[in-house]
Protein backbone atom coordinates (compact mmCIF):
# COMPACT_ATOMS: atom_id res chain seq x y z
CA UNK A 1 0.00 0.00 0.00
CA UNK A 2 1.42 3.35 -0.98
CA UNK A 3 0.02 6.42 0.71
CA UNK A 4 1.73 9.77 0.59
CA UNK A 5 2.86 11.21 3.92
CA UNK A 6 -0.01 13.68 3.90
CA UNK A 7 -2.59 11.02 3.08
CA UNK A 8 -1.29 8.79 5.86
CA UNK A 9 -1.39 11.75 8.23
CA UNK A 10 -4.94 12.67 7.20
CA UNK A 11 -6.25 9.11 7.62
CA UNK A 12 -4.50 8.83 10.98
CA UNK A 13 -5.96 12.15 12.14
CA UNK A 14 -9.45 11.18 10.97
CA UNK A 15 -9.50 7.85 12.80
CA UNK A 16 -7.99 9.18 16.02
CA UNK A 17 -10.23 12.27 16.01
CA UNK A 18 -13.30 10.06 15.59
CA UNK A 19 -12.40 7.89 18.59
CA UNK A 20 -11.41 10.87 20.75
CA UNK A 21 -14.67 12.68 19.94
CA UNK A 22 -16.84 9.66 20.77
CA UNK A 23 -14.98 8.98 24.01
CA UNK A 24 -14.85 12.48 25.41
CA UNK A 25 -18.20 14.01 24.37
CA UNK A 26 -21.73 12.81 24.93
CA UNK A 27 -24.05 14.50 22.45
CA UNK A 28 -23.71 14.08 18.66
CA UNK A 29 -23.33 17.84 18.17
CA UNK A 30 -20.50 18.08 20.71
CA UNK A 31 -18.87 14.98 19.25
CA UNK A 32 -18.94 16.38 15.72
CA UNK A 33 -17.53 19.75 16.76
CA UNK A 34 -14.79 18.24 18.88
CA UNK A 35 -13.93 15.66 16.21
CA UNK A 36 -13.50 18.38 13.59
CA UNK A 37 -11.41 20.41 16.03
CA UNK A 38 -9.09 17.48 16.79
CA UNK A 39 -8.79 16.56 13.10
CA UNK A 40 -7.91 20.10 12.03
CA UNK A 41 -5.54 20.47 14.98
CA UNK A 42 -3.68 17.31 13.98
CA UNK A 43 -3.21 18.57 10.43
CA UNK A 44 -2.32 22.12 11.46
CA UNK A 45 0.23 21.09 14.10
CA UNK A 46 1.85 18.54 11.78
CA UNK A 47 2.19 21.07 8.96
CA UNK A 48 3.40 23.79 11.32
CA UNK A 49 6.03 21.56 12.93
CA UNK A 50 7.06 20.38 9.47
CA UNK A 51 7.67 23.93 8.31
CA UNK A 52 9.48 24.81 11.54
CA UNK A 53 11.85 21.88 10.99
CA UNK A 54 12.32 22.67 7.28
CA UNK A 55 15.38 24.92 7.66
CA UNK A 56 17.07 22.62 10.16
CA UNK A 57 20.09 20.78 8.75
CA UNK A 58 18.91 17.22 9.41
Amino acid sequence: MTLSHFEALAVFALLVATVFALITKNTPREQFRYGVFVFVSFLFVALAVGWIMYPLPL
Binding site: M1, T2, L3, H5, A8, F12, V16
Partner: peptide
Amino acid sequence: ATTYDYGTTYLWV
Protein backbone atom coordinates in the same frame (compact mmCIF):
# COMPACT_ATOMS: atom_id res chain seq x y z
CA ALA B 1 9.46 0.43 2.78
CA THR B 2 8.83 4.17 2.84
CA THR B 3 5.68 3.66 4.89
CA TYR B 4 7.32 1.42 7.50
CA ASP B 5 7.34 4.07 10.24
CA TYR B 6 3.79 5.13 9.54
CA GLY B 7 2.65 1.50 9.49
CA THR B 8 4.31 0.73 12.80
CA THR B 9 2.79 3.84 14.35
CA TYR B 10 -0.65 2.89 13.01
CA LEU B 11 -0.28 -0.54 14.65
CA TRP B 12 0.73 0.98 18.00
CA VAL B 13 -2.01 3.58 18.00
